[in-house]
Computed example of a mutant assay.
Amino acid sequence: MSVGYFISVFAGHVPMLAVLIGGAVLLASRRERLGKRSANMAYLGLGALALGQIIGLIWTLSLPSLYQALGSSVTSYGMVSFGFTAVTTLLGAAGLGLIIAALVVRPIPAPQQ
Rank of each mutant, 00 (worst) to 15 (best):
S29Y: 05
L96N: 12
L96R: 09
A42M: 05
Q68N: 15
L66E: 09
A93E: 01
G56E: 11
S62Y: 06
L27Y: 02
T75H: 14
L51M: 12
I55Q: 08
V25T: 11
I55D: 04
T88H: 12
S38C: 03
R30G: 04
L66I: 15
G83D: 03
G45N: 00
A93W: 03
L63S: 09
V74H: 14
R31E: 07
I58W: 13
G92P: 06
L44E: 02
L51Y: 10
G47V: 10
A24G: 09
L44P: 02
A39H: 01
A50G: 07
G83N: 05
G35N: 09
A48S: 14
A24C: 12
G92D: 00
G97F: 01
A48W: 00
L51A: 15
F84Y: 08
S62L: 11
S73M: 01
L90V: 11
L27M: 13
S81H: 04
L34A: 03
L98A: 02
G92N: 02
A48D: 06
Y43I: 05
N40S: 11
N40Y: 09
L98H: 02
M41N: 03
F82S: 07
A24Y: 12
A50T: 08
L91V: 08
P64M: 09
F82L: 12
A50H: 01
S72R: 12
S72M: 09
A42T: 03
L90R: 15
L51S: 06
L57Q: 07
S72F: 14
S62R: 08
V80T: 07
L44I: 09
